[in-house]
Design a protein around this nucleic acid. Structure first.
Lengths: 183, 183, 183, 183
DNA sequence: GATGAATGAGTCTTCATTCAT
DNA sequence: AATGAATGAAGACTCATTCAT
């Protein structure tokens, strides 16, 4: 949003707050997807067309920003009707998911992060139960196992070079299908 | 090595070349293990007790340094007699392995990296064939699948918070055991 | 006051003016006492529970705010019955006094500052005359000398490290007692 | 030194180290004298005509830089033959002295600062003993008292507005003369 | 070939000040 | 007149890279 703008922005006043927040989240989503969590805070502000100070006001830490982005993403994940669909959705957001998962490790005490963790746990728990009831997933598999699979998938796909993505994706999905399927 | 040294080093001249190389690799191994690839070049040089310029001369890029470290690590991996033993060895070097694997993505054209890729492929190929012959691994598994497993294991263990490592390790090993075992 | 408040304040409109002014002075007193004049304007507004804009409206410059705080402090100083009692009172407000005195230097032309200067001069003049009449202070001492002593005391005590305060205070009081006492 | 230079400096190599250190100390002396310890580190580097990184290499903290400057100043103080002469010298360096004294408070554990403290203590001790032997200073005065006087003088003169300096100086010297003179 | 200092670009972060509502 | 968000200009600090010796 408002990329490449020149000159000082006018001060639009408090009315800009909501717009700014949205723009920051959108900009962060793109930056994180492109460069992981390493991206410069200043780059996000710039891309959002928002002053640095405003970025800090809305999101004092990068974690909180990442959480806000991922909170949106989860909406989409929650539309999945099976673990397989969840994996599809995760892979579609792989880079962002991986970035967020990295952040989580160092900040499990941040409320915003915990909230997401809970949503994910609930979601995975429900899908797992359904898949197990339908005989699609082995009864020995626990929620934690699935969360691990989700994490691995995201990281693997995110890290793959473009030309390898397809192959890596097929192979890892197949591996995890074997790992989860009933004996 | 030669940590915490005080005062200027004497200039030992060309004679120091081999020693320097060894010290740099050792220092890099420790730094990478402790902080991933993010560590500052200067920190590695300092820990090695070597001038910054010398570090650049020996290893113009971080990739080449990482490759040199990993080249040593592979010696150890090659002592594995089964995929299971290989996984054990990888996990023991998880942080370093993950760091290297991250670096690889952006530099598959670097000769040093390619060389390592080939050694890994050969190693994994041999172990896989043996395990398959012994009926320990399903015949449908390909070398690329195992390389993927290795990568995932390293990343997963490296990224886990200390208090979770044990659990994460158990779960992922179990998952991959299911994924690889014969049907 | 109104520290640590959560959520947006209701906009009480003009009715809040007097309350705001009081709250700002109180907040500034605490902040200045704790951190000297360096404290951020925003911190004062936050502690006062007042919008930043309102702070600027009431006190366009930090000097004016400091003067308002000190104006209150002088009420207390005026209860002193002798120079010694004045020194006691100054020392009790050392940090705030020193902060204000620092500000004064760069703004002797600000009306609010001048007013305080006059009150102080009058106060010191009266106390000095009384002490001289009572034979407690040498006749050669002028009002300006005492003002200097006041300033030095405030600065010295304010600058001392906590563990030294007692010693520094004793010594400086003794020094000035010698300096002022009749020959 | 090398103020107002344009464009990137050539890298003069290690040979510049000693020059840089000198230039940094000189620049810091001027900046501290003009603006106290608050001056921006970057301003000092700029004035010295030295890269920021080099400033940090030579002096990791502002305290250490201030100590280096003051270490030079003490040479001059040590030429004093009496406390009166010492006071003259202090006043001549008032702004710098005051700046340094401010720094000292927050860093009495820094070795460089301690060293200066010791030199000052020795110097003052010697001058005090001589002055007391000559009957110029009361026997009840201790070294700590004189150090306090030095500090007060520096701060007072440094803080005075230019047009007041003369008057403030005369008065405070007279006050301290009374405070120290034999009964 | 080794050494380690120099350089400056790039980030993060804080604040004073402005301004729409 | 109050409110609090917006803005951007500093300043601190780090580091990759270069280079004289």
């Amino acid at each position: 949003m408002a990329d490449e703008r020149e000159g000082p922005r006018p001060n639009r006043g408090p009315a800009a707050a909501a717009d700014n927040r949205r723009a920051l989240i959108a900009a962060a989503r793109e930056e994180f997807a492109a460069g992981g969590l390493e991206v410069a805070f200043s780059a996000i502000a710039r891309r959002a067309g928002v002053g640095q100070g405003s970025l800090y006001r809305h999101f004092p830490t990068k974690i909180e920003l990442a959480a806000a982005v991922f909170e949106d993403n989860i909406d989409e994940l929650e539309r999945a009707g099976s673990l397989d669909a969840l994996f599809d959705a995760i892979v579609a957001q792989a880079r962002m998911s991986a970035a967020f998962l990295d952040a989580v490790v160092s900040a499990r005490d941040v409320p915003a992060v915990q909230h997401i963790g809970e949503r994910m746990a609930v979601l995975v728990g429900a899908l797992l139960a359904a898949d197990q009831a339908a005989g699609r997933v082995d009864g020995a598999i626990a929620r934690e196992d699935v969360l691990l699979v989700v994490t691995m998938l995201a990281r693997t796909v995110a890290a793959a070079a473009p030309e390898e993505q397809a192959d890596v994706l097929t192979r890892s999905r197949a591996l995890f299908a074997r790992a989860l399927s009933p004996r």
